[in-house]
Design a binder for these strands. Sequence first.
DNA 1: TAACTATACGGAGCGATGTTCCGGTTAGCA
DNA 2: TGCTAACCGGAACATCGCTCCGTATAGTTA
Lengths: 221, 221
Amino acid sequence: MSDSGERSTTAAPRKRADARRNEQSLLDAAAEVFVTAGVQAPVRVIAARAGVGMGTIYRHFPTRADLVIAVFRHQVDACAQAGPALLADSASPSVALTRWVDLFVDFLVTKHGLAAALQSDDAQFQTLHAYFLDRLVPVCERLLEAAAAAGETRSDVDAYGLLRAIGSLCAGAAGAAGTTESAGTTGGADTTEVAGVAADSGYDARRMVHVLVAGLAVPDP
Amino acid sequence: MSDSGERSTTAAPRKRADARRNEQSLLDAAAEVFVTAGVQAPVRVIAARAGVGMGTIYRHFPTRADLVIAVFRHQVDACAQAGPALLADSASPSVALTRWVDLFVDFLVTKHGLAAALQSDDAQFQTLHAYFLDRLVPVCERLLEAAAAAGETRSDVDAYGLLRAIGSLCAGAAGAAGTTESAGTTGGADTTEVAGVAADSGYDARRMVHVLVAGLAVPDP
DNA sequence: TAACTATACGGAGCGATGTTCCGGTTAGCA
DNA sequence: TGCTAACCGGAACATCGCTCCGTATAGTTA
């Protein structure tokens, strides 16, 4: 992933040094702003933080979704790659599914407003939605099929619906924090054991997702 | 519902006739606009439709939530009142709960963007959120407690969490329509038998809610 | 090294939307 | 009929997404 940008066909039309520098600045700035102000933070804020103008941010990331995807890409990929691994390592497909869902939920819940953005019907986030779906639906599908084949879950729920439902359930939780900002959480933000935060007034997205997944085990009606 | 407004203590400080006329115009206009453009429709549009100025709409309904609540109030009340009735009429508490949830879901799904607004962390909708909760949490609580007492559901999920989860699951579906506008739907918008619409790309909020509720039947982990 | 050009930069500016404010209008009453 | 408090309307201000274009510069070539 690191290295430069495109490097596949012929001689790469290498970008100018200042362009690449600015792109990186924007990614860093966006990552920081997303943590504090959420994925919906004003574009101007991100541009200002990166020390660039409005034109620059839109040149590098035509839509907000592009920026969001760029910031979270490797985390989504990691989640996607964890699917097959879990399926291989777990005692049963349904256990693998549960674990994978936990992974996904933990990712969503720790990103302010990400889940809400995924749910948004805003045209701006169409691409983001599509990216998540492209990456995760196939993975979830395999887990779901394996579980269904083992007779461990009902078969009338597809991966798309399940992922959307999970995203929805998480949107209620993560987004609510908003401007409140959860104390420090200095640097880390990865191994922070995000355990039972429950965030606002007692809504626990993880628990509700667990209930949902448990509902999959109930035989078809 | 009809009649005037406040009529409880002392001599009501009756509003002027034009004020009441405008308030009603706004309610009618808002109801119409909500159907086609969703609850998030621009304030100007509603004001224009009602044939009043910006000042007027804000004077009668200081926040958008106030307007939304006023438009849907009696439907929410109906939903709240259906709870005890279902509990009395159904074969078992869990059946009553399921039926009541269906009622609630049908209500949410048919109101463009309502569920999304409920989920929104926007301060503007705080009041709306609170209103729904005030009205429905007690009802849901009774159903849930009855079901738990009968040993039909797990007991670690409270009414608040369940309602929020349901709202979330519905937000994904209803909001997606957005600007697309569903044909005419001239006046009615009540007995339209909204059956199995499924709306966008195959996500069925009702089904996912059913899975969630089914998950409640799984014994505590 | 100096000139040149494709590339990139920056921010002013436009349109949309929420919200406030204030001068003009009018309903209800004496 | 005349008065006043209540009410109305929309201009005006603020925020935000997004575009456009004149300016600056990185990289190249003579």
